[in-house]
């Protein structure tokens, strides 16, 4: 049984590590800020989730350690989307525009009302 749990935990750790690595590659391969954000969220959610769960399996009955790991995981899962949302919103207000692909909706430009309304120099 413990062999099984060990194996599972190793697998989780390695997959988690790989996902973190992929996310890091992603923030270099993706072309602009908004798509990079998705790459970053890959590592934040599944990457850290798998690694932390992998660690949880290794606690060996120490409840305190388990609780702390769960707290860390919960905390990451709550704050990470909040931070990325705030970041995206700030970027939009700062004048950054996401790149759009073939499905761009020309009729309704949902983003045109964003921008530097509260600044005086809006020469874009």
């Amino acid at each position: 049984m413990s062999f099984f749990i060990d194996g599972l935990s190793w697998a989780l750790l390695i997959i988690g590590g790989f996902i973190c690595f992929s996310g890091a590659i992603g923030i270099h391969r993706f072309p602009e800020f908004f798509s990079r954000m998705h790459a970053a969220s890959v590592t934040d959610t599944l990457g850290s989730g798998l690694i932390l769960i992998g660690l949880m399996l290794q606690t060996g009955g120490e409840v305190i350690v388990l609780v702390k790991l769960i707290l860390i995981l919960l905390f990451i899962l709550i704050t990470s989307p909040t931070a990325s949302h705030a970041l995206a919103k700030a970027a939009l207000h700062g004048g950054l525009r996401p790149m759009q692909g073939s499905h761009k909706n020309d009729k309704e430009d949902v983003l045109n009302k964003f921008g530097r309304q509260n600044t005086s120099d809006d020469e874009q």
Binding site: F75, I78, T79, T82, H85, A86, K89
Partner: peptide, 12 residues
């Protein structure tokens, strides 16, 4: 006005 931030921070 930032709904999400407000609520999450209140919880945290």
């Amino acid at each position: 006005q930032h709904k999400i931030l407000r609520i999450v921070s209140k919880i945290l």
